[in-house]
């Protein structure tokens, strides 16, 4: 897996730690002690509502360091940020797709510490020290991952939206050893939906890559 790649030291703060402005000071105090503090900072009642709204714009955040496709990132994020949104909106890795955003379709599947998971249900703030592999991290040295190659050879997609999730999930499925039969592949790939209905070819692609790995 690409997580074996040597980490290139890179520190990117996608949302630079905000300067200590009045706005962030208010947000911090609000998070810690409630809005009563805010009232003391402003002149009169009309401004209070404005300040509360401003405070709401800067909700509690955290700093987290994680490795994505071999590259170390340190980011400061809103605690609500999912791993999927961190990848897509902050790190510009848009290969992982947002389908249902509820853990029901598998389009967002990535590997975290080698295990396939739904990145939409993973809070990024919880991933301190984690190793994440996305579809962008599977190819090595200009060579597609065997499962990516198998998807092309088996023509295992039409619209392509679910494909990155299918491939990463397939990599997990093969690593787990659940490729003993087509029925087994079908069951263990059931967390990835394909609206185009390419299931038969997806099964074949996973089977092909698994066979290649054994041989």
């Amino acid at each position: 897996m690409s997580t074996e790649l040597p980490a290139e030291a890179e520190t990117s703060s996608v949302e630079p730690p905000p300067a200590p402005t009045r706005r962030t000071f208010i947000a911090t105090t609000t998070a810690a002690g409630g809005v009563a503090v805010v009232g003391g900072l402003v002149a009169g009642p009309p401004a209070l509502a404005v300040e509360e709204a401003v405070a709401d714009e800067v909700p509690p955040g955290s700093r987290v360091s994680l490795t994505v496709n071999g590259v170390r990132h340190t980011v400061t994020i809103d605690n609500r940020t999912s791993l999927l949104d961190l990848l897509r909106e902050h790190l510009d890795l848009t290969g992982s797709k947002k389908g249902c955003n509820a853990g029901a379709c598998g389009a967002c599947t990535v590997l975290v510490d080698g295990r396939r998971v739904n990145s939409c249900l993973t809070l990024a703030v919880r991933l301190e020290g984690a190793e994440v592999t996305t579809i962008e991290g599977l190819a090595k040295g200009g060579q597609l991952h065997p499962l990516q190659q198998a998807f092309i050879e088996q023509d295992a997609f039409q619209c392509g939206f679910c494909t990155s999730g299918q491939i990463v999930s397939g990599v997990g499925c093969i690593q787990e050893g659940h490729t003993g039969s087509r029925a087994e592949i079908r069951e263990w790939m059931s967390g990835n939906l394909c609206r185009c209905g390419c299931y038969v070819k997806i099964e074949r692609a996973v089977e092909q890559a698994a066979a290649g790995r054994k041989g």
Binding site: R116, N118, L121, S169, G172, E176, H178, S190, G191
Partner: peptide, 9 residues
């Protein structure tokens, strides 16, 4: 239960 991804979490 669920899917392989969810069971990993």
């Amino acid at each position: 239960s669920a899917s392989a991804q969810l069971r990993n979490m």
